[in-house]
Design a protein around this nucleic acid. Structure first.
Length: 478
DNA sequence: TGAAATGTTGGGGCG
DNA sequence: ACGCCCCAACATTTC
């Protein structure tokens, strides 16, 4: 154990910033010249918004990647389980560290927890410093002229585009890893991976977690998709998006890195649209910061009285992708299988849950939280509130996606539906998004038995649409 | 980051 | 050739 204070190490507390490049906390520790103790703490207590199943799968592999990357630089990632305050205290004592550095989080519980930790560390004479490794702009930096937080995306985006985010930091070439012996858990004992049943087969095929893979995805996006992004991003049957969301959620790549890379590309509508999506992420996080009740409560108070239906059968049908609407079912199955769903289809299935089925947006929020590898509290909550119409900058109540038209418009050749709903793949394009219009002969030719091999629609579109309009319009008059 | 209903226009079939 | 009707195709408005 080091005794001289000049040798006292610094703990770098990794959280949702599982990368070496552009990591301000790690960078500051490296520049200090002191030995570094990289630490990840698994807080396994039961608590609201603890990571869902898909996130835990990703976390396991992301940590494995970080562990390997750190090892290459000469540092060993310490894995500990328990309450962060307690674990930090232990590791401080065991290592004789001078303090703890970390990158800030913006979830209400994280803010509250970190505030206490920081105060306690400082009281104990330890160094405790937090950095911005996650956001292009801090939530308190972007304000309206009146000094309020932005509630509407468009002006938020206009203002954000005028700011200049800091330049990304290079990854430290070598790290002065702490040489003392500290015990570490092994990833395997954390049981982040599913067993009995192992439902992660589809995830393994779809993803490679880790910083290296994230950088490669960004390169691929620039080469294949960036230019056509504005149109191709709406086509779920094609690879028209960056698919960076889970990497971004775990901080394997930073918004700064993406922003600055995009600056170096040939500017066009596609690149602008892509950067706009990064700004949406900022917007959602800022909203959560300023409105901490975002995940639980509708921001428009009148929605607290909305007569959502109770209907466990419909919830299950939606979750399992058995609603009888092919584009909806395809999306829900893609989610279950890969831990991800194309953005266009997310809007369709969300609109279907909230408007066609009149089920609470919280039901969708919870399901997405558990099944998405890119689950992010702010994005998830803000976007569900947006669809339900109860957010600050929300879709108008009368906007009801027609699942047939959405399918015909964005999955014209049916590639997406045929991939995820193979039991109706034999239908011609003209019937693929509305199998209930197929004749008996056409069904037979496609090998479909309506109601058995594929469900009949659990609600009639026209009926459900009028029902939703009625319910939402009534709310408006309250 | 819709969709459906309603309104308008203009070409063409037809008496 | 004319008026009438039908109905795409497009525009506007309403939910």
């Amino acid at each position: 154990m080091p005794t001289s204070t000049t040798e006292a190490p610094l703990i770098v507390w990794f959280r949702k910033d599982l990368r070496l490049a552009d990591n301000p906390a790690l960078n500051a520790a490296a520049e200090s010249g002191r030995p570094i103790v990289p630490l990840f703490i698994l807080d396994d207590q039961k608590r609201p918004w603890a990571p869902g199943g898909a996130s835990r799968w990703w976390l396991h592999h992301s940590l494995a990647a970080l562990q390997a990357d750190l090892a290459k630089c000469g540092a060993r990632l310490l894995l500990r389980r328990g309450s962060p305050a307690k674990v930090l205290d232990e590791v401080l004592r065991e290592s004789g560290a001078e303090g703890v550095l970390w990158n800030r989080g913006y979830e209400p519980t994280v803010i509250a927890r970190d505030k206490i930790i920081k105060a306690d560390l400082q009281k104990a004479g330890k160094r405790a410093e937090s950095f911005n490794g996650t956001l292009l702009f801090e939530p308190w930096e972007l304000k309206t002229q009146a000094g309020h937080p932005f509630k509407v995306f468009t002006p938020f985006c206009r203002n954000a585009l005028r700011m200049q985010p800091r330049t990304p930091l290079a990854a430290p070439k070598a790290l002065n890893g702490f040489a003392g012996s500290l015990t570490s858990d092994t990833l395997q004992t954390w049981t982040l991976l599913p067993t009995r049943p192992d439902w992660a087969g589809g995830l393994r095929k779809a993803w490679t977690p880790g910083e290296t893979a994230a950088a490669a995805l960004l390169d691929q996006f620039r080469e294949n998709t960036a230019e056509s992004y504005l149109i191709s991003r709406d086509l779920p049957g094609e690879v028209g998006t960056s698919r960076l969301s889970p990497h971004l959620a775990f901080g394997e790549i930073s918004a700064h890195q993406i922003w600055h890379r995009a600056r170096t590309w040939e500017q066009g509508a596609g690149v602008t649209g892509f950067v706009r999506q990064i700004i949406w992420r900022e917007f959602c996080t800022h909203l959560l910061y300023h409105f901490p009740q975002l995940p639980e409560e509708p921001l428009r108070r009148e929605f607290s009285a909305f007569p959502w239906r109770r209907d466990p059968g419909s919830i299950t049908a939606w979750q399992q992708g058995r609603t009888g609407y092919p584009i909806v079912d395809a999306g829900m199955r893609e989610l279950w299988h890969t831990g991800w769903m194309h953005n266009r289809v997310r809007m369709v299935v969300a609109s279907f849950l909230v408007k066609h089925l009149l089920l609470p947006w919280r039901v969708g929020e919870d399901w997405f939280w558990d099944t998405l590898v890119d689950a992010d509290l702010a994005n998830n909550a803000a976007n569900w509130q947006w669809v339900a119409g109860c957010g600050t900058d929300a879709a108008p109540y009368f906007r009801v996606f027609n699942p047939v038209l959405q399918g015909e418009k964005f999955d014209k050749n049916g590639a997406y539906v045929r991939r995820w709903v193979p039991e109706i793949a034999g239908l011609p394009d003209s019937l693929l998004h509305k199998p209930w219009e197929a004749s008996e002969a056409q069904l037979q030719a496609a090998g479909i038995v309506a109601g058995q091999t594929y469900p009949v629609p659990i609600v009639d579109h026209k009926t459900a649409r009028s029902r939703a309009l009625l319910a939402f319009a009534e709310l408006r008059n309250v």
